[in-house]
């Protein structure tokens, strides 16, 4: 019984983390928090400080920081390895034009996942 959550150090990511921890509690499941780090730069704002993240996630749960240029693929990989029963991700609200331009990690996870996906919305930042 494993839940996989995609985390980024943003308000939306925090909402995902909160929701994922609540789900893990509810289902008595182990949580694997995935924070995909984009390699190549000296500093990546999407990478969370590992020790701090682990402390917040708590004992019994796991933090992984795969190095990948494709966050959707990295998240799906972990979900498959862990035979996850649920994936928790965040989705941003966007205009149709924004969607067209930005392409969506969330959309790929939704379409390609083998298990149910819980999409958390960022209600504070419309």
């Amino acid at each position: 019984m494993t839940i996989v959550a995609g985390y980024v150090p943003t308000p939306l990511g925090e909402a995902v983390l909160g929701q994922a921890l609540a789900e893990a509690e509810l289902r008595k499941a182990r949580l694997v928090v995935v924070n995909v780090s984009h390699p190549g730069a000296y500093v990546d704002p999407g990478t969370a400080p590992p020790a701090e993240l682990q402390r917040r996630v708590g004992d019994g749960h796991e933090v992984r920081q795969p190095q990948d240029t494709d966050p959707a693929a990295a998240l799906l990989d972990v979900a498959r390895q862990e035979s996850a029963e649920l994936i928790v991700i965040g989705v941003r609200r966007r205009s149709p034009v924004g969607k067209l331009l930005m392409g969506s990690t969330a959309q790929r996870v939704l379409l390609e996942s083998d298990c149910p996906v819980l999409a958390v919305k960022d209600n504070d930042h419309r």
Binding site: Y42, V43, P49, P50, A51, E52
Partner: peptide, 8 residues
């Protein structure tokens, strides 16, 4: 805080 440990 090991956040800024040498990345390379």
């Amino acid at each position: 805080m090991t956040s800024a440990e040498a990345p390379v």
